[in-house]
Each structure stands twice: as structure tokens, then as C-alpha cells.
Design a protein around this nucleic acid. Structure first.
Lengths: 145, 145
DNA sequence: TATTGTTATACTCTATAACTATA
DNA sequence: TATAGTTATAGAGTATAACAATA
């Protein structure tokens, strides 16, 4: 019995949640494949996606955004920097702080990767226009803070 | 600019997809915390969730379901077996094949973990009943094969 | 010979704790 | 003293290739 069929007995919220979970499970291999197309690990891709060219982050900010310890970020950033996708720049106001800035090459690769990521998967693409709008509207309300 | 706001310009499908992506991103830390409540890694939890008591899998079937190489599964299964949650049993028809069977302790822990996982997150719980049904219905159509 | 699963190896991610440089 | 980031260390996940047992 799948999560979704079990959840059917517990009401719409539980079933919707179970269906979302199934959706995530189906998409995860696609994300891993997409990252490896660009020769990035999932963590590297996640980090790069957070580093908009106009919004450099510090090491600790990136650690917080990735929900992991700061010591991990050193390695992840090392690998991105070794590939020339980002650079560490000391902050002006406090030389302990490093600003992570995307290089031109990094911004270009980041943009191409995000374009691919934004392509909706078949599950969404094949919905009717009305269903696509309904999904968008409900998710907007769900994620509104 | 977030993925969702960028996607707004490209129509409902792209924005719905971006919102789903944001949803996954928000939920991931919750899943990791949930797994570690049971002292399981994400991979171990995923593996255990796939091993229903009435549906043992072989090593290769589990590798396929986890979308990873069979050699990884050896280690993941080793750790679950060391904790007494599952056992390897040689299949009757072919002694090369190992059937992964959940123990009583494993089934009990698995059931408790799945119950926790099935609890819908706040984002869904606080939707109106009509929105919950709408979300469920659209997702049913999206995931139908 | 072919297949199932394991072992060997190497790299990445992860956390904890100790450390360096700066504040 | 306190903070930002690094290094040291250890455990887990991942893939590739070589291997053993079985078919």
C-alpha cells in the first residue's frame, strides 16, 4: 500500500500531502541528473543556486541557507572556487568575513542550470490550463507566510 | 529574485513548478529531522520505508527503488541489519538472491516513522478544506499515469 | 558465460571539536 | 573574550571496477 492510498482514509490534507511526497520522490532523480549534467553535486548546485550575481552571501549565511554546519561549506565552496565558478572576497568592514561572489563563468553556468530546472516536469506540463492555474493558486496560498 | 517570482512571467505551469520546488526546499530539513528522531539517515529511512513487512525486496530491487548503485545498498542494508531492523534471507529459488525482510522491531519502528511522515505540514494543514480538496484533486490528475 | 551481491577504492557530504585570524 | 572561517577527524552516501558464489 502506498502512502497515498493509506492517506486516502484520513482526509484531503493527508492525501494531498502524500501525493506531494510522491511527487518529490519522482522528481529527485531528475534533479540529481540535472546537477550532474553540469558536473555539480546536489550540494554544489544548491549552493550555486543561492548565489545570485547581485546578492553575494557570506560563508555563514550560505551555511544557514543550506541548513548545514559551516565547516561543510568550506569544502563545497572550495570545489566551486577551484572550478572558477565563484570567488571568496574579504568583506570591507570585517576582514574575517568572506563574501562569496559568482564569477562570470559561474553566473553563466548558474543561469543555464536554473533555466533547465525551471522547465516544468511532465506531471505539470500535461495538466489542463485550468488545473495549472488552480495548482498555482493553492500553492501560493499554502506558501504565503 | 526567487525561482517563483522569475517563473511568474512564464505562465501558470512554470510558477506552479517553482512553488512546488520551494515547497520541497522547505520540507527537506523537516524530513532530515524526522529521520534523525529515529536515528536513521535519510537513505536508511528511505530504504526502510520501501520495505513493507508483506513485500520483501531483493538487494537489486532496493537499489533500483533508491535509484542508486547496488554496491551502496550493501552498506545501507548492513547498518539496518546491524540494528536488527531487517534481515537478509537467501531466496529459495536462487541462492545468489537475498530477500530483505523487516523484523518485528523494524516493522514497529517503520510504522511509527511513517505515521509521523504522514502528518501534513503547516502549509497544507492551514489551507481551507476546499483548497485541500482542490490540491488533492489536481495532484491526483498530475500523478495519474 | 551471465548474474547477484560483496569488496576495494576514491570522492563528496556531514557533524563535532580544536584551531587561526580578526574584532 | 567573542566571532568568522578553517582544519582535523570520523562516519555515511555515492559510483566504478574487480571479485566470489551461484546459476
Amino acid at each position: 500500500m502506498t502512502a497515498a492510498t493509506t492517506a486516502t482514509k484520513r482526509g484531503a490534507a493527508a492525501e494531498a500531502w502524500a501525493l506531494l511526497f510522491e511527487f518529490f520522490t519522482r522528481e529527485k532523480p531528475r534533479w540529481a541528473a540535472l546537477a550532474s549534467e553540469f558536473e555539480l553535486s546536489m550540494s554544489q548546485a544548491h549552493a550555486l543556486s543561492l548565489l545570485a550575481p547581485d546578492r553575494p552571501l557570506t560563508m555563514s549565511e550560505l551555511a544557514h541557507a543550506l541548513v548545514c554546519d559551516a565547516s561543510n561549506v568550506t569544502g563545497i565552496v572550495d570545489r566551486l572556487e577551484a572550478r572558477g565558478l565563484i570567488v571568496r572576497r574579504p568583506a570591507e568592514h570585517d576582514r574575517r568575513v568572506k563574501l562569496l561572489c559568482v564569477t562570470d563563468a559561474g553566473a553563466e553556468l548558474r543561469e543555464r542550470a536554473l533555466q533547465r530546472l525551471f522547465e516544468p516536469p511532465d506531471e505539470i506540463a500535461r495538466l489542463s490550463a485550468a488545473d495549472q492555474r488552480a495548482l498555482r493558486d493553492v500553492l501560493r496560498r499554502a506558501l504565503a507566510r
